[in-house]
Structures are given as C-alpha cells and as structure tokens.
Computed example of a mutant assay.
Amino acid sequence: MTVHDEVSIAGVPWPVYKVLSVVIGLVVLGIVAIATTTAAPAVLAGAAAATVTWVVLRPFQRAG
C-alpha cells in the first residue's frame, strides 16, 4: 500500500500538514468571526491556529 504525504492543488504538490494548517486556520477564523463579529480577533486567532498547527505537525512529515 502506498501512502501519499502530498496533495496536488492546481498541479502543485503540497504536504498534507500545510493543507491541514490552512484549513484549521480558516475554520478558526470563521468561528471567531461569527462569535465576535469583528475582523481583528478573527484574523489573529486564525493565523495563530494555522501557525501552531504548521509548527506542531511539521516534525511528523516524512522526508523523501
């Protein structure tokens, strides 16, 4: 069985952890935007969530 650690987006391979980070950041942005109805906390929370996810998941990426 072959496991792919990349997702093709517009013909460009992205590591799964990066795609997951972007998705989590967007979800957090949406939730905070709905909860606070202001842009600044939503953007900061989304960026923070995406950055933390990226940094935490990066060591688990297989080299190759």
Results as ranks from 00 to 15, higher is better:
Phe60Pro: 01
Asp5Phe: 03
Ala63Trp: 12
Ile31Gly: 03
Gly30Arg: 09
Gly46Tyr: 13
Gly64Asp: 15
Ala49Pro: 04
Phe60Ser: 02
Ala39Gly: 13
Leu29Ala: 06
Gly11Glu: 01
Ala63Gly: 11
Ala33Trp: 10
Glu6His: 06
Arg62His: 13
Trp14Thr: 00
Ala35Val: 07
Ala40His: 14
Thr37Pro: 06
Phe60Gln: 02
Thr37Ala: 09
Gly25Thr: 07
Ser21Trp: 08
Pro13Cys: 02
Gly30Glu: 11
Pro41Asp: 13
Ala39Lys: 08
Ala39Trp: 15
Val32Ser: 09
Val16His: 04
Gly30Ser: 09
Val3Leu: 15
Ile31Cys: 12
Ala42Cys: 06
Met1His: 11
Lys18Ala: 10
Val43Gly: 08
Ala39Ile: 13
Ala33Glu: 11
Val27Lys: 01
Ala45Cys: 09
Pro59Ile: 00
Val52Ala: 14
Glu6Gln: 10
Val56Met: 13
Val22Ala: 15
Ala42Asn: 06
Pro41Glu: 14
Ala49Asn: 10
Val23Ile: 14
Phe60Arg: 01
Met1Lys: 11
Pro59Arg: 10
Arg62Leu: 12
Ala48Gly: 09
Trp14Gln: 02
Ala63Arg: 12
Gly30Pro: 12
Val55Trp: 08
Glu6Phe: 04
Thr51Tyr: 04
Val52Ser: 05
Ala63Ser: 12
Ala47Met: 10
Phe60Cys: 02
Pro13Ala: 05
Ala39Thr: 08
Val56Asn: 06
His4Pro: 02
Val7Ile: 07
Glu6Val: 06
Ile9Lys: 04
Thr2Val: 08
Trp54Asn: 10
Phe60Met: 04
Val3Tyr: 15
Pro15Cys: 10
Ala63Asn: 08
Val52Trp: 11
Gly64Phe: 14
Glu6Tyr: 05
Val28Gln: 07
Ala50Ser: 12
Leu20Asn: 03
Leu57Asn: 03
Ala35Gln: 12
Ala47Thr: 02
Leu44Pro: 04
Arg62Gly: 09
Pro59His: 07
Val56Asp: 00
Glu6Pro: 01
Ser8Lys: 11
Val28His: 01
